[in-house]
Design a protein around this nucleic acid. Sequence first.
RNA 1: GCCGGGGUGGCGAAACUGGUAGACGCAAGGGACUUAAAAUCCCUUGACCCUCUGGGUCAUGUGGGUUCGACUCCCACCCCCGGCACCA
Length: 833
Amino acid sequence: MQDDYRENFDAIERAWQERWRCTRAAAAPRIPGRRKFYCLEMLPYPSGRLHMGHVRNYSIGDAVARFYAMRGYDVLHPMGWDSFGMPAENAAIKHGTHPARWTNENIAAMASQLRRLGFAYDWEREIAAHRPAYYRWTQWFFLKMLERDLAYRSRRLVNWCSSCQTVLANEQVEGGRCWRCESEVGRRELDQWSLRITAYAEELLADLASLPGWPDKVLAMQRNWIGKSEGAMVRFPIVEAGGAPGGEALEVFTTRLDTIYGCTFCVVAPGHPILARVEAGGRHRARLDEFLGRMGNREVARPGAAPEEKEGVDTGIEVVNPYSGARVPVHVANFVVMGYGTGAVMAVPAHDQRDFEYATRYRLPIRTVVLDERGIPAASPPSAMVEDGRLTESGPYTGKGSEEARREMLRAGEKAGMARPLVQYRLLDWGISRQRYWGTPIPVVYCNACGVVPVPESDLPVLLPEDVALTGEGGSPLARLASFVETRCPRCAGPARRETDTMDTFVDSSWYFYRYCDPSNEKAPFDPEVVAAWFPIDLYIGGIEHATLHLIYSRFFAKVLRDLGLLRLDEPVRTLLCQGMVLKGGSAMSKSRGNTVDPDEMVRRFGADTTRLFTLFAAPPEKDLEWNEQGVEGCFRFLEKTWRLLAPRFTTLARAPFPAPGDGGDDPRRAALRRKIHQTIDKVTVDLEKRLHLNTPVSALMEMLNAMQDFVSEFREGDDPYLKEAARTLALLLQPLAPHMSEELWSRLGGEGSAGRQPWPEARPEWLREDEVEIVVQVNGRLRGHLRAAVSLTEDEAIRRAREDARVEAHLAGRTIRKTIYLPGRLLNIVAQ
RNA sequence: GCCGGGGUGGCGAAACUGGUAGACGCAAGGGACUUAAAAUCCCUUGACCCUCUGGGUCAUGUGGGUUCGACUCCCACCCCCGGCACCA
């Protein structure tokens, strides 16, 4: 049965996918002068199977890409693979396969799933991070950064995930846990490579203002993450054994220099170098050691740890407040972290909540130095007075406002050499060394004679060796491979050792979208001219989880590439769309929860069009989407109804002529149908182009189909051309949302070529305009009646007509009309009292 | 605590620059077709009330305000979700 969609959808979809595969154009270059649209979805990690989150992400992107193609844009819509990373290595350890094999098989499987969903990607531009032709350039960028001192090696305290056996960047620690495996993250001191993202901190922050197309949420998260604070670095000279201040000082960072006269002690983090001064065997030493011992491993900063009760001990060290001259004790306590500022703070209990709590607990003096605007000391347990105000008991600054005092105190402090202005960021440099195998090798060697030597560009790529033993025992697998490690120094030809750490995979994904523009360039990562023609990315779609990961790294890379002369813009992404999660039973789909829905099964039961349609229809893109199988059936029914209505008429409609543009106006049914067609075109176009709403276009098409059904239910001689016009329009409007149905309808209705290559239909103003409209009649703003009239109806005439309505008149009874508000063609409001 | 986003029927949602609140879909109820079921088609469906082929009142988290008119703008508050967090 040809008119049974249920029997036919699979064959229809497969046939079109086959045709798309054969007819796909060779990687199209930009045509100068034409408008371009770069539509990009975040590239997936090749885990082996698509999940519904992918399907949703790509359905949104594909709809937009197909729409812009029909609107006459040159569209770039590529796909690739973020194919380095730990899961491949873990799978290899577990199953005894090689990560490369596992990865390549997964890519093949997922690519075929993507094809079965009918996504229109330009596969000739496909890239994969693990292919040498790609990671060669990842290494090249690293060398360029090394040249510019944007990559450096240092011994630093790093986040260590013992389960993943590797270092994590700060961005990869979430609430003290590993972003991938959720195990608790420890700290280790290691030599590792970092990228100097902090060199761009100010610009990364400032340029957020130039991204109106980004969600406020992401802008806020990045602003937060960069965490700029302006303040002062102040030197507190250390009192030496003899009792006089010596040359050495404790440096503290403060944003509240105005409160410094209220500093009654200082606090350093456990692990602060000043603690070495506490004499062995002294009474302070014993208590200090007891305290540090109790802190256990946590003698160093733990980003993301939950606040706990303030606890600390007096170190016996004293420092001098350079402003007031007061001698204050130095404590070590658990609420100061080593990873921010200098790991030391001046404590002003009257005006800082943490200091207040600590001082209260240990009965340390609390000195009020800022009064509120009424001149009242406002610190009262359990809270410190943390607002700005007017200074008191602050020597020459008494009586000044906080703001002014900060300025003047800083100026004076600078002159005296005891303070200097400092802008502090929360953002830290990006540690990229990973002690794992399946990643881009870091292209440097260590020579006994020459030290750290970059691998010459001409020797790139440093190939990742294949014959490696993956045991999962820890330590970098490459380090155990002599044939890789042992090499010659490129500078002196003497014996040297290769770096055996690999790069964080976020390095790979920080520049991939440029490579799509010029995917097979062997001389450079890309031709700047070609990239300039396609950039910026017009729409970038992905999950919010990358707000302070990929999306901040990519912005950093863009700025570096710009400074290398490869890029002509400051920001790579114009509009960012963060799609919501796909939920089932109220929570995110996950294997561990057992609430996943398999895309393949959906495609088998309902087809790609239905699966895609549902992910677009069920919720606006940025909201979470609750998977609802009955909703899926609803979308299937829509396609089924479309098919049932048109399939029996394919031959007739294919042969029928189109109505002339002005025809049908004299027949209310035909006029209504044509009006609906053009209103639908208008609605779908505006929603796709201006609002990026994808649920309402689906509704609009459902409404249009309902109108077509009504039209057919009273079908008359000579109606064919009108139905044909509606059906052909429906076929085209469906292209972004349900492309297979779109193509099938188009060809069965006698359309030439592919529906996807047709120009997008245009709403004709003469059919959008309704000659006779319904005008709402209100009395005192409340709906009391309607009248059908021409748009040109005058206000007086409208009032006269409205008052013919008994209902309106009843509400006016006994009242005087004060005024009327008339919106021609819309509404009449009679205000009466 | 700070920052961001939200609170609309039984549910997912819609309402463009303030102008008919609830489009579209799901679910539910009733009916037609059928021996029956499925499928399909038609009707009803925010709540309450009345003198019930009609009409009224209330209703978009709560309380105020602006306006002829407020889901939409302003003020205050409550709740939910997300992010950050001893950041000095």
